[in-house]
Simulated assay, not measured.
Amino acid sequence: MAEQQLRTVLEGGGFFEGPRWHEGSWWVSDIYRHTVNRVTPDGAETVVVEVEGQPSGLGWLPDGSLVVVSMKDHCVLRYADGTLSTHADLTEHCGGHLNDLVVTDAGQVFVGDFGFDLMGGGDARTASLKRIDPDGTVSVAADGLQFPNGMVVSPDGGTLVVGETLGNRYTAFDLGADGTLTNRRVWAPLGPEVTGRTTGEVLGQLTVAPDGCALDAEGHVWAADAVGGRVVRVAEGGAIVDEVAAPEGHGAFACMLGGDDGRTLLLCCAPDFYEHNRAPAREAVLLATEVDVPHAGRP
């Protein structure tokens, strides 16, 4: 595993999440500045839209409109022609803040939630993966997941892989054309089974906590390790074949492959993920490095 040189793309964030490469720029949510921002490769930042309920996962529907998670409202919002509207309200199916999402080629949106009050130190509970169909209909696609977070869809559209941040694993499903998930299986075990109940117990049992992630053309997942201060390149089966360390004093909480050739790896880094620390501070950074294998699939 070669040591990677990181360069700074942007400083002064609250907490960056949901990074995406789209139409020649990075797009990223800043949860505690309540903004979705477009960032050029050389670090020029433009606020695209404000989301008071705390923005997170980002994606684009087939018609080109932006969808963005509003975490505290439990909604996925749609932004088009300068107007922000509700694409779907998922309150009925949420046990905690809504979180990351991925959009399929057909326009289905898959989105997870925390499952419990993470910031308040509540006991850990499982959560569901929810599907929003193009007409806005909401259904539960899979349940019993331990903090479903970053997701990828294979280039052929036939497989969805989701990170279980508090489960030490990636879980895969066959993805049908209608959005149905079947053939659930562990795609990559990253540590022992998590048995803790309190937040502290669970965090203490994590080996790798897969957070925001990206798929590459060799079928590996680049994943931010929310407890390890790094991003890791994970092979199916669970082997970690490469890693990039975050700067000292920072954790890594999301990543994405992009750039014109798909080989730029963007890291979302901050000292920690706790709201009471991050909301008043402006210490989050976007960092980048180059890797050999380009982006593939979605997001």
Rank of each mutant, 00 (worst) to 15 (best):
Pro55Asp: 13
Val68Asp: 05
Val76His: 08
His34Glu: 09
Asp100Ile: 07
Gly96Cys: 13
Pro62His: 04
Leu98Lys: 14
His97Ser: 13
Leu84Tyr: 01
Ala80Gln: 15
Thr35His: 03
Arg33Thr: 12
Ser65Ile: 02
Gln108Lys: 14
Asp117Met: 07
Cys75Val: 14
Val28Pro: 06
Leu77Asn: 01
Thr104Arg: 00
Val36Ile: 05
Gly59Gln: 08
Tyr79Ser: 08
Asp81Ala: 06
Leu61Cys: 03
His93Met: 07
Val76Trp: 13
Thr91Ser: 11
Tyr79Asp: 05
Val69Asn: 15
His34Phe: 11
Asn37Gln: 15
Asn99Cys: 10
Pro41Leu: 03
Gly120Gln: 08
Val109Phe: 03
Leu77Met: 06
Thr91Tyr: 05
Thr86His: 01
Gln108Leu: 13
Asp73Thr: 12
Gly64Asn: 02
Gly120Arg: 12
Gly64Ala: 01
Val103Cys: 04
Val102Ile: 13
Ser70Gln: 14
Ala106Asp: 12
Thr104Val: 06
Ala80Ile: 11
Glu52Thr: 07
Met71Trp: 03
Thr46Pro: 05
Thr46Ile: 09
Glu52Arg: 03
Gly82Met: 11
Gly64Leu: 01
Pro41Asp: 00
Gly57His: 03
Thr104Pro: 02
Ser65Asn: 11
Val111Thr: 10
His34Trp: 10
Gly115Lys: 09
Asn37Trp: 01
Arg38Phe: 10
Val49Glu: 05
Thr35Cys: 10
Arg33Phe: 03
Met119Tyr: 15
Gly64Val: 00
Lys72Ser: 15
Thr83Trp: 00
Gln108His: 15
Gly112Leu: 04
Asp117His: 13
Cys75Arg: 15
Arg38Cys: 09
Leu118Val: 14
Val36Gln: 11
Thr40Val: 02
